[in-house]
C-alpha cells in the first residue's frame, strides 16, 4: 500500500529527476550503468527521506544524497570505459556532426567531466549548479578554502579537456 509519505516523495522525485540524471551522466558512461546508478540513488533517497526536515530545498538535499551515492556507495561495473580511452574519444568528438549544437556542447562537457576523479566531478557539478562555496564545502565535508583550491584545479583540468 502506498503511503502519503511515499506519494509525496515520488512526486518530488519525479519533478526533480533531472538532478539524478545529471549526476548519473557525469559518473557513468553507458545507459546500463546510468540506470543502475539512478536506481541506487532513488533507493537511497527514499531510505533517507524521513530524515529530510525541509530546512534546505529538496533539490539541494537530493544533490547531496545523489553525489554521496555516486562517490561512496555505488559499486562500479566493469563496463565503464577507462579515462584514457575516453580522452581519445573526446578529441574525436569535436569533429562529429551534431544537429543540435546545445546537445553537442553538453556531450562535450559530460565527456570532459567524466575524465575527472569522483571528487572533482562533484565540485564541477556543484559549480555548474551555481552553488556557493559555503554549500559546496558543507556538502563534501571540507573547508571552504580547500573547496576553492580544489575547484580551481578541477576547473583547470576541465578547461584543458575542453580546449585540447
Amino acid at each position: 500500500m502506498t503511503t502519503e509519505l511515499e506519494k509525496k516523495f515520488i512526486k518530488e522525485l519525479e519533478v526533480n529527476q533531472n538532478i539524478i540524471h545529471k549526476v548519473c551522466r557525469a559518473y557513468t558512461n553507458n545507459a546500463s550503468d546510468h540506470n543502475d546508478l539512478f536506481q541506487e540513488i532513488s533507493i537511497q533517497l527514499w531510505k533517507a527521506y524521513d530524515k529530510f526536515r525541509g530546512d534546505s530545498k529538496f533539490s539541494t538535499w537530493m544533490y547531496r544524497v545523489a553525489l554521496n551515492t555516486a562517490i561512496s556507495l555505488y559499486r562500479r561495473s566493469k563496463r565503464q570505459v577507462k579515462t584514457g580511452e575516453l580522452y581519445d574519444n573526446l578529441k574525436e568528438l569535436e569533429y562529429e556532426a551534431y544537429d543540435d549544437s546545445t546537445e553537442q556542447q553538453l556531450a562535450m562537457l559530460y565527456k570532459a567531466i567524466y575524465t575527472l576523479n569522483d571528487v572533482d566531478k562533484a565540485l564541477v557539478l556543484l559549480y555548474l549548479e551555481d552553488k556557493p562555496y559555503k554549500d559546496i564545502a558543507l556538502c563534501l565535508g571540507i573547508s571552504e578554502v580547500n573547496a576553492r583550491v580544489k575547484m580551481n584545479r578541477a576547473k583547470n583540468k576541465l578547461k584543458e579537456m575542453l580546449n585540447p
Binding site: F9, L13, Q17, S42, Q44, L45, W46, K47, L128
Partner: peptide
C-alpha cells in the same frame, strides 16, 4: 546549456514507485 538541459527519458511515477522498493546494491 547546463541549466537548460533536460534528460530525454523522463521516468513516470509508476516506474519510480517500483524502483525505490528494489534491493540496494550499495
Amino acid at each position: 546549456v547546463w541549466h537548460e538541459q533536460e534528460h530525454k527519458e523522463q521516468l513516470d511515477s509508476d516506474t519510480l514507485s517500483k524502483m525505490i522498493h528494489r534491493r540496494s546494491s550499495s
